Each structure stands twice: as C-alpha cells, then as structure tokens.
Simulated assay, not measured.
Amino acid sequence: MTTIRWLLGAVKTAYEDYAIGVKLDEKFSWKNVEYDWLSPLLKENTIRTQKYVPENNLPLGLDLWKDELFINVPGFKLGVVSFLNYVNISSVLKNLILKPYPSWKVILIDITSNGTLADNFPIASAIRVRVDECDRLWVMDSGFIGYLAIQVKLPTIYIIDLNIYLLIKLHWFPISHLKDGSFFCVRTVYFHVGMQNRTRALSIEPFHDYYFVGDRGPNGQSRVSFLDEKSNVLFYAQINKDAVYCWNTEKRKEKPYNLNTQGVVDMNSDSLVFVNDLKVDRDGYLWVLSDRLPVFIYSKLNANQFNYRILRGKVSELIAGTACEYKKMCKQGWSSDFAYPN
C-alpha cells in the first residue's frame, strides 16, 4: 500500500509539472540587498560601525502602488539600514537598488549595540506591507530587533497616504494583547497557522464564524496566501514543493478545498525556494517574492548566487487550464478574463 501511494504521488507530481502552462516571469533578482546611498562615505561609515551589515538584509514582503513596488526588510538580524523601501518597476534592470521610503532623512536609524532605537525613528522592524484600494500603505511593525527578538517598541500598524506621503494613522498593540512568543502575524479571511498544511477561514459577518476549509495534503505546508477578490482565486505558497498553488473559492461548494481541487501556478526548485509573500495588483498581476529565509536564519546565504527574487504573471493566464480557472458566460460565449479597475 505504501508503494502504491508513493507511485501515485510520483505520477501526480509529474502531471503537475506537465500541467503548468504560463509560468511566472522573473522581474528582479538580487545576490545581496543594496541601497541607494546618499554618498559612498555614508555607506562606508555605516558598514564600519556595523549599523549596516549587507548579508543581514533580507526582503520579506512586497506590494505595488502605481509604478512603485514596496519592499520591506525586517530586522531579523542587526545591521538592517532601512526597513521600508521601494523600487520603480519600469526599470529594465533586474538587480535594482532599494530606495528607503519615504526618504533617507526619515528612515536613517542609529541602533546601538544593546538594541535600543533612535528616538527619531518610528519603525523598528517592518514585517508586512499592504496597499489598499484607497491608496494607503499599511505597514506592520513587530517592534522587535534581531533574531533573539529584542523588543524596542510596541507592535504597531502604520497607515500612510501614498498620494501625499503622509502618516495619517498609527495603532499600538498593548503587550497584554499578545501571547508569549507571538510574532504579530496576519490572519486574513483565509488563513493558516504557521506553516501547517491545513487552511481555515474566518467569516467577518455576521458572527465571526470560524471553520475548517480543507487540507492541502502531504507536504502541503504553506506560509503565505492572498485572495484575489476579482477572480475569487486564493493563491498560496507550498513551501516543501517550491511552488505557488491556487484554489478557486467561487467553486468551494462543488469543489471543496483538497489535494485534487488545487491548481499549480508555478513550480521551480531554484527561483521559488521559500516563497515569503505574494500579492495581486490592481491590473491583475500576481507578484511573488522568494528569499531562502531558512538558510538566512540558521546558516549563511551564498553571496555568489541569487538569493532573492521577485516574479510576476497575469492571473488570467496563470490559472488558465488549471483547477482554478473560472469561466463565465457572456454574450460572445465563455470567457475567463477579469476586468480589473485602473
């Protein structure tokens, strides 16, 4: 029986590789994170004083607004010089230099050897970013510096109006609201705890019903997910498979969430090693960030290979021919295109 199960798994994996049609395109890639320094002298001084340790800077999350792609670099290790950054996606270069957001004047920090934070710097460690439909950037700050989690401030959410580059609101989370060991992570409408292979959902109306959605099957652990509300497709990373999968929530009654109703968006043992964030923008493109986080935390990244990548692909093309494809009836016949607002 064990042999049969193994053979079936091998056949399914081979089918998944064959079934992938349009794949994600690699947009950007880095061996090490580099910043757009004000001057060579500033860079030299921050490296000399170990306020900037290049190998300790790891991109963790991303989101897009117009031509600006926001990239957060958390303070998992000491020596992170800018926690919130952006690049312009119109550039033809793949190895882009990160620009601190909104500017060096605001973002430049001074971390002492004991982990304390400069009084004039608001963000301690940006772990997630999200741009909403009202042109506001939400920044989730864990309040911790270093892998040993030195707490320098309360966990905080910052809300920035991107049209006028202004912080319009912030909210602190009291320590009493957090459990010991909590890392201040999101739970969205569809969510998973840590890297489990099960997905759950939380109904926001009317009674906040919590229920079990389904199981991704063996080795189906996931770390991040994103629900594209236009296509009703849930995208998520399959960490052990170096892949991005999808599930059509519109079909959840006829095709419940399980191993057989998931679609393979892309699978690659190099470019998709440990996908750490993914988002769908207003134009219907899926953006994916991979960063080899386990190696970064427990060992040391190879500075001679590409360690961080950002890939993207059009949703309608990525899910075409998969279990996630959604076809609707229109006057001209069946269509799988979605109208995304400008």
Score class of each variant (00 low, 15 high):
residue 98 L to M: 07
residue 99 K to E: 00
residue 102 P to K: 05
residue 107 I to C: 12
residue 108 L to K: 08
residue 108 L to A: 12
residue 109 I to C: 13
residue 110 D to I: 02
residue 110 D to G: 09
residue 110 D to A: 03
residue 112 T to Q: 13
residue 113 S to G: 10
residue 113 S to V: 12
residue 114 N to S: 10
residue 114 N to P: 09
residue 114 N to R: 13
residue 116 T to G: 08
residue 116 T to Q: 11
residue 116 T to I: 15
residue 117 L to F: 14
residue 117 L to Y: 04
residue 117 L to A: 13
residue 119 D to E: 15
residue 121 F to V: 04
residue 124 A to I: 09
residue 127 I to A: 00
residue 130 R to T: 01
residue 131 V to W: 01
residue 132 D to S: 05
residue 132 D to N: 09
residue 134 C to I: 04
residue 135 D to N: 14
residue 137 L to M: 03
residue 138 W to Q: 03
residue 140 M to F: 13
residue 141 D to I: 05
residue 142 S to R: 03
residue 143 G to R: 04
residue 143 G to V: 00
residue 143 G to E: 01
residue 144 F to T: 01
residue 145 I to E: 01
residue 146 G to R: 05
residue 147 Y to L: 13
residue 149 A to G: 06
residue 150 I to N: 11
residue 151 Q to H: 07
residue 156 T to W: 12
residue 157 I to N: 07
residue 160 I to M: 09
residue 161 D to Y: 07
residue 161 D to H: 08
residue 162 L to Q: 04
residue 163 N to Y: 10
residue 164 I to D: 06
residue 165 Y to T: 07
residue 165 Y to V: 06
residue 170 L to S: 12
residue 170 L to A: 06
residue 172 W to P: 02
residue 173 F to V: 11
residue 173 F to K: 09
residue 176 S to G: 02
residue 177 H to G: 07
residue 177 H to F: 13
residue 181 G to S: 01
residue 185 C to D: 13
residue 185 C to A: 15
residue 186 V to N: 05
residue 188 T to W: 10
residue 190 Y to M: 08
residue 193 V to N: 10
residue 194 G to D: 03
residue 194 G to P: 07
residue 195 M to W: 05
residue 195 M to Q: 09
residue 197 N to I: 00
residue 198 R to K: 13
residue 199 T to I: 09
residue 199 T to Q: 04
residue 200 R to Y: 12
residue 202 L to R: 12
residue 206 P to M: 10
residue 206 P to Y: 15
residue 207 F to N: 05
residue 207 F to G: 13
residue 208 H to C: 11
residue 209 D to N: 09
residue 210 Y to K: 02
residue 212 F to V: 01
residue 216 R to D: 07
residue 217 G to W: 07
residue 219 N to D: 09
residue 220 G to V: 06
residue 220 G to H: 04
residue 221 Q to V: 00
residue 221 Q to P: 01
residue 222 S to N: 13
residue 222 S to W: 09
residue 223 R to E: 03
residue 225 S to C: 11
residue 226 F to L: 03
residue 226 F to K: 05
residue 226 F to Y: 11
residue 230 K to E: 08
residue 230 K to Y: 11
residue 231 S to M: 03
residue 231 S to L: 07
residue 233 V to N: 10
residue 236 Y to F: 14
residue 237 A to T: 14
residue 237 A to Q: 10
